[in-house]
Nucleic acid binder design. Structure first.
Lengths: 336, 336
DNA sequence: ATGAAAGCGCTAACAA
DNA sequence: TTGTTAGCGCTTTCAT
C-alpha cells in the first residue's frame, strides 16, 4: 500500500457515513449542517464537523431538493443574454439569488415563443423556486409554471398581464420624454428605430408618437429591425437613404443605437450636429460609444433585486412601474 | 359547484397518479417517458400518454436527479457574465448544453478567488454533470469538483494546468501577431493596456514584448487596469498623459479597448492616424465601435461547443489550443 | 409486456 | 439532546 495522494474518491460520502464516523445519527448531522431545527450539544457538533472535514463530506443537493420540494434555484429566461441589458439584469439577479443561497439557471429564448415555452416547461419540471421571464410575447403562456405553483415575474413590461406579477418601466412615458428632449432641441423631423413589432416596442412607438403629436409635429420615419447592433445598423442605413431624412432619431434600445451610430459615422454625418440621437436602456455600453449616448436609463439593478424578492415573498400579483431617468450625454446635442 | 377555471393545483401529480389513472404500474410510466429501457405496448403507451395529458403530469426533476445521480445540468463560472466575451461564451454554452437536455447554471466570481471557490463548492454539492471555469487565478482550486468526480474544463487558458482539461487560444502568439501588425504599420512606440496582473494577462504581455524585442524595438509604456470599459478608459488616459506618448496601443481585450477609444476621442486624437489600436477577443462590440476595432478574434462558439462536449466525453485531461484570427478593421490604420 | 419493490440521500416528525 | 424512521418521486432490477 502506497502513501500516495487520495484516490479520486467519487465522493460517495453520505450523511450516514458522517453519522457513523461521528457516532451520532444522521438526524444530528442534518441538524448541524442546517443549524437546526433542533439544537445540538456543542461537543457533538464539534465531532460532526470534524467528521465532515475528515470525510470530505458534501451534502447531496438533489436529495435535499427532493425532500424539501425545492432545488434552491431560480430560473431566468431572456431573449438574448448577450444583450447588455439582459446581461446586466441577469448578473444582478444572480447576485440577489446568491444572497439567498439560490443558484441561477439561465436560458435564452432567442426571441422565439416555442423555445421560450420549452424552457418554461423545463423549469417547471425542475420545480425551481421561481422564474423571471422577459418574454418575446406580450401574452406569454406561463401556465406550466402556474400549474406547478411556481412564482413568476414578468420582466421588462410596462403593463400588467393576467394575474402574474410584473415589473418594468413606463416605456411609453419614457419614450415620450426622450422624444420631447429632442423636440426641445428644435428638431421637427424625428425618426424612430425600433424592434420588429411585438409587445413592448409598441409602447415606445406610442410614446414617440405622443410627443410628436403633442408638439404638433408630423410623424417621422420608422425603421424596424432586430434588437441587435446589426439590426440598428441596418435600420440606421435605411433612415439615411430617405429623401426627407430626419435630423434626429429616437432609438428604442442602446444596442440598436450602437448600430445606428455606426451607420451615421460611415455616412460622414456629424453627431449630434447633423443627426441627434437619444436611446433607451442606459446600458454601460451607451456611456462608451462615440459620441456617448443620451439615453433613458432603466434602474436595472433595483428592478432585478426587487424581482427576486417578489419571487420569494410571492405576494398577490401586481405590476410595479419603475422610474426612468434621462441621462444627458453627447449624442443629443446638449453639449457641443 | 361552479364551472370556473381549474384551481391552481400546485401540481402534486406524481408518476404514481399517472400509473393509477392509466391502470399500469409506475414502472411503465417511467418507460414511456424515457422511451425505455423496456418496451411498452403501443396501446398501453397511448393510455399513459393520455393520463399524463389529462392529469397535467410533469416529472419531478429532483427525484430523477437523485435516482440518476445527475441533475442534468452543467455549471459555468466566469469573472463577469456582463463582459461580452463571457456573455457570448455562456450563450453558446447554454445552447450546446441544451442540445443535450442539460440546463445551465451561471455564476459570477467577480474576479474574486473566494467567491469562485464558493461557487465551485456549491456546484459540487449540486452534483452537476460538469463545470466550465474561467478562473481568476492561474492556479484554480478545483479540488471540490475533482473530489466529487465532476468533470471540469478550464476556459480561456493557453497553458495546461495539473490534470484538468483546458482550452483556449495561444494568447502569447496572438498578442505577438497583433503587435507585429502594428509594427508593420511603422510604429516604434507601442503601448500596452492590460489587466491588473494575474494569469493569462502575463501571456499577452509576453507576446507584446516578444514582438517588440524581435523587431528590436524598445519596450513601450504599460497601463494596467480592470477588464472593463472604465478600466480601459482610465488606462488610456494614463497612456495619453505620458511625455513620450506611444503612437499605437495593443489592448488586451475588446472591452478595455472600448474604454481606450473613449479616452482617445476625448483627447481629440485621430484614430488611427495619431494613435492606432489593435485589441483582443473579437467580440461583437468591437465591430461597432468607432472606428471599428482591428482585433484578434477568438473562436468563441467553437470553443464553447467543444468545451461542453469534452465535459461529456470526459477523456483524459488535455489542453487544446485554438487558432486566433486577426480581423482587420479601421483602428489599426490599414484603411485610411 | 408489465408489476413489485428497493433505494438514491436527505429532512423532520415522533419517540425516547 | 439525540435516535428511529418514514417518506420525497423517480428509475430499474428482478420477477412474472
Amino acid at each position: 500500500m502506497s502513501t500516495s495522494g487520495t484516490p479520486p474518491e467519487t465522493s460517495r460520502v453520505t450523511s450516514q457515513d458522517v453519522a457513523r464516523y461521528a457516532q451520532v445519527s444522521a438526524a444530528v448531522v442534518s441538524y448541524v449542517i442546517n443549524n437546526g431545527p433542533r439544537k445540538v450539544a456543542p461537543q457533538t457538533q464539534a465531532r460532526v464537523l470534524e467528521a465532515i472535514r475528515v470525510l470530505g463530506y458534501r451534502p447531496n443537493a438533489a436529495a435535499r431538493a427532493l425532500k424539501l420540494g425545492s432545488p434552491e434555484m431560480i430560473g431566468i429566461v431572456v431573449p438574448d443574454s448577450t444583450n447588455p441589458f439582459f446581461a446586466e439584469f441577469s448578473h444582478a439577479v444572480e447576485d440577489a439569488a446568491g444572497e439567498r443561497g439560490h443558484a441561477l439557471l439561465l436560458a435564452n429564448s432567442g426571441e422565439t415563443a416555442a423555445i421560450e415555452r420549452k424552457h418554461l416547461k423545463a423549469f417547471a419540471s425542475r420545480q425551481v423556486d421561481g422564474v423571471l421571464l422577459a418574454s418575446v410575447s406580450p401574452f406569454p403562456d406561463v401556465s406550466p409554471l402556474i400549474a406547478a405553483g411556481i412564482p413568476v415575474v414578468l420582466l421588462d413590461r410596462s403593463t400588467p398581464f393576467d394575474d402574474v406579477t410584473s415589473i418594468g418601466v413606463d416605456l411609453r412615458a419614457g419614450a415620450r420624454m426622450a422624444v420631447e428632449h429632442l423636440i426641445g432641441h428644435g428638431h421637427t423631423n424625428i425618426g424612430l428605430v425600433i424592434g420588429a413589432q411585438q409587445s413592448a416596442e409598441q409602447e415606445r412607438e406610442q410614446g414617440w408618437l405622443d410627443a410628436l403629436t403633442e408638439a404638433g409635429l408630423p410623424e417621422g420615419p420608422i425603421a424596424r429591425g432586430p434588437f441587435s447592433r446589426a439590426g440598428g445598423y441596418a435600420a440606421g442605413q435605411r433612415l439615411l437613404k430617405l429623401a426627407h431624412r430626419p435630423t434626429a432619431i429616437f432609438v428604442s434600445s442602446d444596442i440598436q443605437a450602437i448600430g445606428v451610430l455606426r451607420a451615421l459615422h460611415e455616412s460622414g454625418l456629424d453627431i449630434p450636429a447633423e443627426m441627434a440621437i437619444v436611446s433607451f436602456d442606459g446600458s454601460p455600453e451607451s456611456e462608451y460609444s462615440w459620441p456617448s449616448l443620451t439615453t433613458l436609463r432603466q434602474p436595472v439593478r433595483s428592478m432585478a433585486v426587487d424581482a427576486v424578492s417578489s419571487l420569494f415573498h410571492k405576494a398577490d400579483s401586481s405590476h410595479t412601474t419603475y422610474p426612468t431617468e434621462l441621462i444627458i450625454r453627447r449624442s443629443c446635442g446638449c453639449t457641443p
